[in-house]
Design a protein around this nucleic acid. Structure first.
Lengths: 168, 168
DNA sequence: ATATATTTTCAATAAGTTTTGAAAATTCAA
DNA sequence: TTGAATTTTCAAAACTTATTGAAAATATAT
């Protein structure tokens, strides 16, 4: 397979993959393009390579920066801004985990904590099932939270190595 | 907080949470409703409690069944079909992990394997970055794959207990 | 068999999300 | 400053996905 075909395939699949994870297709495609670009590239490069509008590139690169996956770089003598992606996949993953934990898991756990105390007879079947479900999810989420925190702080080789040894 | 308010809050939040994970809002809301229902409930119960159409309920309950999260139950003497959700959150999670692995991770790893061998000069910067990126993602994904496999097969108390001890 | 209850399907429609592109804002060199 | 280059914004349009509801299919009781 030629590089150009492989690139197109990767960008397209990574975009489709992203949509299953609550990330919009274009943001994932721009990320894919940046991941395989050895040097920083400009808005115009992205527009051209993905055939999308300037506004779209601007909006999605900003989101990638908010997620901590991409940075703006200034190249001396160049007027335009350049974009560069973090290439270390372990760092990319922990960054995504960190952000999603903050945006999704933490608020959910907070809510579940509030829903745990409800008025009413604890012997009532409805009340009991509701409380049991909420407590179950909260406990599970709390444990996931701890595991993710350790992963975020840990170094790749340590965590993956240990986990694999542990699970073997 | 009253049970009715807490239920509404949980269903609504669980629906919003689902959308961040590639699950549609209504499917997640039906799942939430079933999780807190002590006994099996009918299509009509779901329609009424969530104010949605019959077709919508039918489509989404079918998806929940495909995902292995909900089952149809027949109640002797009753004409209608009833739906019942798996209540054990550990089982729910491993079931979801199993399905998503099958639907998303496995195909992605297969594709990455194919993209690894491309024609061209390995000293070329573009070729090198492309290959490095693909190999990096594939290795990472492969390890995640192994860890998930073990989790899926493992027994709840054993894994969670051990993990917590391990990470404490 | 027939009538009735129930579930399923799917085309049309509604709702939600993403993209565009042109105008406004900003940056920077001369 | 001024003006050209560049980036940002955002309302409108395009596209995508979810929902409805009524007709068709299926199941069950008499």
């Amino acid at each position: 397979m030629k590089l150009s075909a492989a690139k197109a395939q990767f960008i397209s699949s990574w975009g489709a993959f992203g949509t299953h994870w609550g990330i919009n297709r274009t943001m994932a495609q721009i990320h894919a393009l940046l991941l395989i670009s050895p040097d920083p590239i400009t808005q115009d490069d992205i527009m051209e390579q993905l055939s999308i509008s300037r506004g779209n590139v601007n909006m999605n690169t900003r989101d990638l920066i908010d997620w901590g996956l991409v940075e703006r770089v200034l190249i001396p003598g160049e007027r335009k801004e350049f974009f560069l992606a973090e290439k270390d996949i372990w760092k990319v993953s922990t960054q995504i985990i960190k952000e999603r934990k903050k945006r999704e898991l933490d608020p959910m756990l907070k809510l579940l904590g509030q829903l745990e105390q409800i008025e009413g007879d604890k012997k009532n079947k409805e009340v009991k099932q509701f409380t049991d479900t909420i407590v179950g999810i909260r406990k599970f989420g709390g444990q996931a939270d701890k595991v993710l925190d350790v992963m975020i702080k840990a170094d790749e080789s340590w965590v993956l190595g240990s986990l694999l040894k542990f699970f073997k």
